[in-house]
Design a protein around this nucleic acid. Structure first.
Lengths: 343, 343
DNA sequence: TTGTATGCGTTATCAC
DNA sequence: GTGATAACGCATACAA
């Protein structure tokens, strides 16, 4: 039942040459070294015998695993599957397999995941998480190239692919202003994450520019980009402030705002407008459909994979940071500011 | 920069023993063979030197990769992430890494993915896809244990974890009957998949038992469990039949039905009731929230992982099939049958 | 152009 | 109990 695998030696014996000759033929880079006729014979019988290179032997020899580690907070967050597929689409044709690690936004789990990746000798690492410092991620205690996705690297020279968060937030503010909103609250993301920080800072800046209310009490920070945190934050805001719209730092937080509004008996999109960020799958089917900023998740994954490949192939990696443009998508969760700000 | 990895030989040299002794100490199974004192010294210096076993050398020797392949149709389908996390939760503590393959419901891609997995010498395979025949999956041309998840294996003795589809469909029919529905349509899944087939057959059977209309024209088959197919099927049904409810074979198809109803100017849950299957994430937030059958996705993944571990550890795998119980979740997409069936 | 020899880092089978 | 040695399958520097 367990058919023993065909090895180079088996083929060599069959053809009557030395295993190293077979090795040369089967390796594209060295195939030119060998007599074309005998090479053809070897290739043919290798094929006939169903030869499959032993990845362990290969890796042991070359120290290349052809495995890429991808670290994300949580695959159940709809933002990540499209990114992952983008990564795979680029990497798979090059022979790389992807191993995922969910960190659940725990720096401890990030650390452990990285440890596992290094043990497994991954050839590269793409991380969409952002708790650990750059230093830690960049210097893994091994020579592993890293690419950040959806997170800006502080260390210069470290490749990353991000969206223009500032432009997205600016578009949201402009949209809300055009609807007549003057008091806009912000459910801010974790300030340890570059996305949370930039969106927050841009929010403040754009409100100021637009002449909107800038009370610090209109802002509530969260510990994680998760629905529960969004709900908590929005509830707190509703308790202490008056406003007609909430800008959430991402879709999941916006979803939490939906919950908080429902709790308070307010109608989202009429009493209070809500905006998200990311345009993750299915938010167009929510109740009400979410006004948000669309970001090209697939392209982000593809870009990250390409940046990684650049490093792996030692190409003078021309670009180091890819910045993608977001796009405002207006749906029913935003509407004209009510004359009297509810609660 | 590239610190060379510490090897057994390095440790041996440091302690003054032979590498094989170090190997014995570092392997739990053979540690008992060696003098406790020297063993302690070795373990200590190994730790101090930051020893990490080389997985390639280990795998080359033992033919175990500690990698499990997981084949799914599409990670962007919200049903799968919870299953995957369930799998990882069980497998990770045992040292296994998971490599995913998306097949996009293409048997060709399934074939290629399996090929890749076998090449990479995965220790086991979990598949949530269902296009290829059992024979093909079970006999991979290598000695790789397989577990099916969310698919019933035809070949006896092949482990699988499934839900009681029949019970789920029966609960839906009972629910609809209690709401006064008499003409119920079915958007059936692909009949090549066990879930599609069983749900269809149960639908027919339960309608008969309940005395509902059983016209064959009330049923439309789809080619894939995808939103677009659901929309197409529901549109076709609306064109040719009268009914007050649609039972979709899963949530994604139900989502397609939403679209078709909207196209036809009908209000889901009032004019026509719609039900799904799976209770995938976010369907409780749809417009309207979807009445569906909840299935324990996490447990399915965990169960599959456990069945696989049973095979990997050569435990006399006691059970071979795990059947989980589904649960009807009533939401706003179902309501009382309107007096006059809207087209 | 091809064969020889060696080593990648382990585990396992021998002796001692 | 421990050391020596071979072997896992491959790539490659060197020799021919």
């Amino acid at each position: 039942m367990t058919k023993p695998r065909v090895t180079l030696k088996d083929i060599a014996g069959r053809v009557g040459v030395h295993p190293s000759t077979v090795s040369r033929v089967l390796n594209p880079k060295t195939r030119g070294m060998v007599n074309p006729e005998i090479a053809a014979t070897i290739a043919e019988t290798a094929d006939k015998m169903g030869y499959r290179p032993n990845p362990f032997a290969y890796s042991l020899r070359t120290r290349r695993s052809f495995i890429i580690g991808v670290m994300i907070p949580d695959i159940a967050n709809p933002v990540f599957p499209p990114i992952i597929r983008g990564i795979e689409r680029i990497l798979e044709p090059h022979g790389y397999a992807v191993v995922l690690a969910n960190t659940d936004n725990s720096s401890e789990r990030e650390r452990v995941s990285i440890e596992r990746f290094v043990e497994r000798q991954v050839d590269g690492l793409i991380t969409a998480t952002s708790l650990l410092s750059d230093d830690f991620l960049v210097d893994l205690g091994a020579d592993v190239p890293v690419v950040f996705v959806n997170r800006r690297a502080e260390t210069p020279g470290v490749p990353s692919v991000v969206v223009n968060d500032a432009a997205g937030i600016a578009a949201i503010i402009e949209h809300l202003v055009s609807l007549g909103h003057r008091r806009v609250a912000h459910v801010a993301g974790p300030q340890l994450m570059s996305t949370g920080k930039i969106r927050y800072e841009t929010f403040v800046e754009e409100c100021r520019k637009a002449g909107l209310a800038t009370d610090a009490t209109l802002i509530e920070f969260t510990d994680a980009f998760m629905e529960g945190e969004g709900r908590r934050a929005a509830t707190a805001l509703l308790k202490r402030e008056k406003f007609t719209a909430i800008v959430a730092a991402n879709d999941l937080l916006a979803l939490g705002c939906y919950g908080a509004l429902a709790d308070a008996g307010l109608v989202c999109g009429r009493d209070v407008s809500v905006t998200g960020f990311n345009d993750m799958p299915f938010v167009d089917r929510l109740q009400p459909p979410l006004t948000t900023v669309h970001i090209p998740l697939n392209e982000m994954g593809e870009g990250a994979a390409r940046l990684l490949l650049d490093q792996l192939m030692e190409n003078g990696s021309s670009e180091t940071t890819i910045t993608l443009q977001p796009e405002l998508v207006v749906r029913a969760s935003t509407g004209p500011a009510p004359k009297v700000a509810k609660k």
